[in-house]
Structures are given as C-alpha cells and as structure tokens.
Amino acid sequence: MDVLLQILVNGLSVGAVYALFALGYTLVFSVLGVINFAHGALFTLGAYLTYLGVGGAVGSNGALAGWALPLALPFPVALLLAGVGCAGANLLVEAVAFRPLRRRHAEPLLYLITSLGAGVVLVNLLQIAFGAEGYALPADALGDLPPMLTLAGARLRSVQLLLLLVCAAVMTVLTLWLERSRGGRALQAVSEDATTARLLGIDSDAMVRLSFALSGLLAGLSGGLVGLSVSIAGPYFGIVYGLKGLGVLVLGGLGSVPGALLGGLVVGLAEAAVPGDLSGLKDAVAFAFLFAILLLRPQGLLGRAPITKV
C-alpha cells in the first residue's frame, strides 16, 4: 500500500512537470498549428536564470567563469524573474524563427526546422557561457520549509509538493483565463480561424505574441522548479525533457489543454511504476506511449480528430 502511494506521489510530481511542458507546446500549437522546438532550450534557460537569481556563481568551465550576481534573491522572486526572462526570450524566438515565415505563409515543416535551430543556438550559447558541468540550486532555497514531508506513509519532498501546487495553480488559472476572459476567448478565436478572428477585430499578431510569452513563462517556471528538484544536469537537460514533452503532447492530443495534463500524469505515473532494476529503460516510456497512441488513436487521448477539407 505504502509502495503504491509512494509511486503515486512520485509519479504525479514528475507528471506535473511533463504536463507543464506539454502545456507550453500546446499554447503555441493551438494558435499557430506548429510546434516550437525551442521550448526545451527555454526550460534550460529558466533553470540557469533561477540559479543565477538565487546568487549562484558560474563554474570554472564557462566563459563567464566565477561570475555571479551581486545579490542573492529569495527563491520565489528568482523563479518569477526567470519566468519573465524566458517569456522575453520566447518573444525573441518568435520574432526571429516564426514571424518571417508567417509573413511568407511558409509550410509548417519550416517552422519546425527554424525553431529547432533557435533551440540549438540557445542551448549551445548557454554551454559556452556556463560550461557543460551540472549545477545544483542551494538546498535551503525554500527557506524554512522542511525538506521532507510524510503523508500517510508516503514521503514527499517539499519541492515535489511545490511542483504539484504550481502545476495545479497554472492549470486552473490558464483554463479559467482561456474560457472566461476576453483575452482568452480571443486566443481561442485565433486558434479556431485566424482570418475570421482578424475580421472580428482581434489583433491576431498580438495573440501569437501573447501565446509565446505565456509559453515561455511556463518553460521558465518549470525549468527553475525542476532545477531545484533534481539539479541542472548541464545545458542539454531541457532538451531531454523537451523531447519527452513531445511524447506527452501527442499522447494527450495536439492542442488540447486537458490532454496535456492527462498525458503528463499518465507518463509520470508510468515512469514511476517502472521497477528499480529496469530503471534505465524509464526514459523510453514516454516514447513507447507515443507510438502506441499513434497506432491506436492518432488524435491523442483528448484531441479532436482533424477534419480534412478538400
């Protein structure tokens, strides 16, 4: 029983990260119908920015060796600033890798290639600045919170609980905003039909920028939280999560917000259930789900089947 509960707790907290990831992809996908492959790189950026924000110094292998901010911010402030920084960076990605192609009405394949390029440039610039080594956020970043909590026999790290809470809060706010507010409805209108939305007086370019900023914010927040939870394994660690996030995205259904949540939790739980002696195969779980869903239900668990018009 305790083992099951432990798997559930671990699975949900990992799944929450995947869900945040897939949600970041989903925001952009639902507006533009393309995937921003630079998302994983923004996640890495968020983790490094958070690390700098709490006063961490750059290691000896980077071009910025030894450099640190003159002040150390509390973790929540650093995390929020990192999120804002990533929102800005994603706006830059939009301006360089997406907008010129949108003006030309280019084929979706090209967005994929340019955003992949933007991600590779970003990750490797980070590698040059920070070196390839891993970084760990200080263990006392959460202040007075106890590092470990015990819930009905299952052990839960405070940072895992924080991840779950942030994920739940983001999901709730985002869903309410999309469904209830004018801005959210405008975003949905653009995702349904950009031309009609423009005729109705919605500035679709502004909506695209908004979706990129929100998606960057999510990437930055989840990067900082995961950096605290499992440490930053080097500039490529966001790419690994980013690739898994793609599996989660397809599993949940491209463009579906509840699908991103469900997909994330399913993959997180499945990974947590992989027995210890097979733990090396854990990283393949998300991709096995991806193939299974493409075979059985290509539109994903909660996605709409596309209607092809001739």
């Binding site: 360089v96 890798a97 010129p100 192609l101 280019a106 090209l110 290639i113 340019t114 992949l116 390029g117 933007a118 991600g119 590779v120 440039v121 490797n124 610039l125 040059i128």
Partner: peptide, 15 residues
Amino acid sequence: LRLVVFGAVILLGPL
C-alpha cells in the same frame, strides 16, 4: 562554436 554555427544555419537558412 560548431553547434552554434549549425544551429544558426538551421535557424537562418530557411529564412
């Protein structure tokens, strides 16, 4: 800078 250069090729090439 190898991968930065390759990344820039992929990013800017299609544009």
